[in-house]
Amino acid sequence: MATRFVNIENKLPASTALYYPAIAGGLSVTIGHFLKNMLYHTIGLFGNKGAREKASFTLQYPEVMRPLPRRLRTRHRIKVHEDGRPKCTACMLCETACPDFCIYITPSEHDDSPEEKAPLEFQIDLDRCCFCGFCVEACPKDAIHMDTQIMETSSDRRENMVLRLQDLVDPGPVVVSGPEFAGKDMHKVLPHLGMRKLDHIKPRRIDLSYRERQATEQGS
């Protein structure tokens, strides 16, 4: 195939071809926005909230939280019966479904429980979790949910990223965020929702031998 050369003539209007009129137009737009917003900022300095909101559309995130979508997949929780027993029956289905091998369940028999089986320990390693939600779908008991609306799960220690049964049960029934929380101070809303920050959870030891065994078993 022969190479064809096509001459494309870019016929620009004179105002663009001369650059300066176009540059002046662009600058007038940005400078106009600048002056307008500066005016709003200055009015906002005197405590006018409406002016401050006009000056910038952004939410100051750590202090102010944007309302999250109801169906957003956030930190896990395990639902409980009315008497406080976890609904989980340690069937291991979520552990099997998890693509990242980050759920480690220690099942045990339970004479008191009508389900006969219950988790002695239930760990989710959020470091590995990809928030895919497969565990939620796999659960036959509808015991595990990802609706705590907690997203700030970062920590500077690996151990702190592992949720235990206690942490999973603890958030309790959670009020999902809605428009009523728009623009509210996050730290004021959190206790109201019965949530805690993950950083307050005590460091734990991870049972590495268990994790490795798990990975080899599932990998083979």
Binding site: T30, I31, H33, F34, H41, S56, T58, Q60
Partner: peptide, 10 residues
């Protein structure tokens, strides 16, 4: 700051 102000940011 200047860019933030005219882009409606802080």
């Amino acid at each position: 700051k200047q860019s933030a102000v005219f882009q409606h940011r802080i």
